[in-house]
Design a protein around this nucleic acid. Sequence first.
DNA 1: CTTGCGTGTCATAGC
DNA 2: GTGCTATGACACGCA
Length: 799
Amino acid sequence: MLYLKKYFTEGLIQFTILLSLIGVRLDLDTYLNNQLPPLHEIILGPSSAYTQTQFHNLRNTLDGYGIHPKSVDLDHFFATRRLLNQVRSLDHLRVPSTELSAWLVHRDPETVVSATSQSGPSIALDNGGSLEDVNNSEASAMRGAGGASETTYSLNGEDSLGAVAPEDSQEQGERESSDDLSKEDIEIIDILWRQDIDLGAGREVFNYSSRQKESEADKPNEENEEAGGREESWRNGLNLRAVQNLHVDGETGESIPTELTSLGAQTSLSLQECLRLLEATFPFGEEPEFQATGPTSQLRASTEETPSTSQGIALQAPLSQSNTPLDLEQQWQDIMSIMELQDMEVNNTAANVTMNNDPNNNNASTTESATIESFELPRSTLINQDVSLHQASLPSCSQDFPTLFNPELDSTGVQRPTLVRLSSSNSSNINSTYGATNLTGLFLPPPLNSTTNLTTTPVLPDPFSSLLEESMLDEISLLDLAMEEGFSQDQASQLEDELDSDSGLSLDSSHSPASPSNSETSCLSAASSSSTSATFSEEGAVGYSTDSEAASAEAEEGAVGGYQPEYSKLCRMSYQDPSQFHGIPQLENVNHNHTYNQPPASSYSERSQLSASCSKKGRDKQMQQTKLQPPQDCVDRQSSRDERRARAMDIPFSNEKIINLPVEEFNELLAKHHLNEDQLALIRDIRRRGKNKMAAQNCRKRKLDTILKLEQGVQDLQREKAQLLKEKMEYGKCIRQTKQKVQSLSQELFAQLRDEEGRPYSASEYFLQYGPDGVLLMPRNMSTEQSNKPDKKQKDKKK
DNA sequence: CTTGCGTGTCATAGC
DNA sequence: GTGCTATGACACGCA
């Protein structure tokens, strides 16, 4: 019962942690406080989503199209302010926990499973690790005694997550301490871990990890005999039991439960492989063979336990089926074994990191680390996103990755690049997988990250803060400076586009009523082959109905018509001036299909014919209205009220002519036709409204232009301001240098001055005064009184 | 159902 | 005085 209680307590805590990591909720603040590297990956790599939202808002507000035309100045002002504020706000890291949790939740277990099932490279891609990881995994696979080791490594890496995650403060200190890799430090760490245990953290994990470290350190000397020790053997026993259980499952063909997480799924696969290998290699229950395989046997023992993790998870389903207390205990034991393996993995990586990171380590430790590393690299390669996240919570992991990815480090020469790489890989992975939930943009766009990280210092005491301070903030400030330096909005947006790969909402799309209408217009244009201008509403700015409808309407208005195309083009072109919106392709296609100019009634017969020609969308709408409304609607729908009125009044010429003809021609036109008062009044109203409509459109266009110009002016002023500040700084620097130079020269000159007796002047009694005539030597007590006349000597300052 | 946006229209001022 | 333009304000339809 004592063990049961212990396992229950510890396992419950870690299981809770595991659940939290699975995605129920993740206290990001804790991770942030820990400032763990994997978190960097998550934040810096895939965080573009955040940036995305930022920039989307930015665009929506700043592009000028989201601004309401009516409030030009205010909108512009606020838009600019928002822009700057948002850019500056990037300085403040804001990591919504929901985002992160979403990432975890959305982690696709199937993907992981498939990845694991497929091959090492795919797994590596799925992992937070980089491509090198793939190579490493493959190499490790080749290296390993069997494929089982590979899977076990992957499991270890994967499992290394959650167990350690919750411990915060103390582990930070532990992490720091872990950097130095002496046994004394390990003892200290062990003490700290005991404290953690008091706080509820699993003791065995740490003990095991530390012991693992020690065992690994001692491994060269002790060979394999005592590898693992009692607890390790015990764990192996658990693992073996788990393996057996799993083995049974595999034989029965029972599907391994993946409901827990991708962890479980991934573990299941590795479990099966492991089982196969185990079956082929060893009979179950023979631990000694595992541990006595060679100089790396101890490592193998540890790695072989990894199956237990997966197995432990996989076992839960069968265990759940059995309700006996024994099963419960076994289940907890399995969970604990998983946790231990996780911690072991983490600690191992940490140990490796510490060893590798410390250049001053003795050769033995380095060699040990190297050997260990060779084994652990596969693990790391197989670490999936979960692992990275979990490791992010682990303080000791902060430097794991650099160590693990030494090749990368060699190329970059700094530790941080590994983080960059990881982040990039994660980001890409997340981007590909989750698209809109891209987290990269929150802090920095990937390019910036890479550049930033490349420029960072090799020392990585506090990866997160350092990244923020050195890289992110610099980049942010750079971006801000760029904005102030006059980055045009196009440039900014371009930069944003470059930075934010999956920014589904672009400047263009944000404005686009275009996309839906565009499809409609295309459909309409296709339908209306008669009029090339049918893409735009034939009724000019008024009628936006579907092209087919428009075409039919236009045909129907043949007697009246022909005026619409030019007018519509005119109106539209005024709004869609390519020069104005050249940078916004979608805007060029903006065609609002506002079919609200629908006549109240029409003839029923026409309607049935017209409805067939109407666009599919319009058809759908009409299908509902067809039974109640006459067929004329389809025609009239596209025509403006004035057109309908004109038709109703039998106006003999088109509205286009009414509106666009010069006054003289218009009057002549009216004179030609003998029209009654109502017709004349209607025509004049049509002309007035039509002109006013164009005027309104032009007015709005001008507003937008004004807004854009003002924005550009603001940006220009910002650029100018930045330039002036820069010049000011340069001048100030120059002035300081000049002053220093003058001071030094003065001192030198003063030192060379001699009185009549050849004695140097006392600095306390005399000083040099600079005047238009040159340099004067002035007594200090007379400086105020006789400042005007040279007291004793006048010398040129020249040397 | 509400909201934001685009558009049309009216009223009005100015040229 | 007339015609035209510009613009604020409002209403409507749509997503």
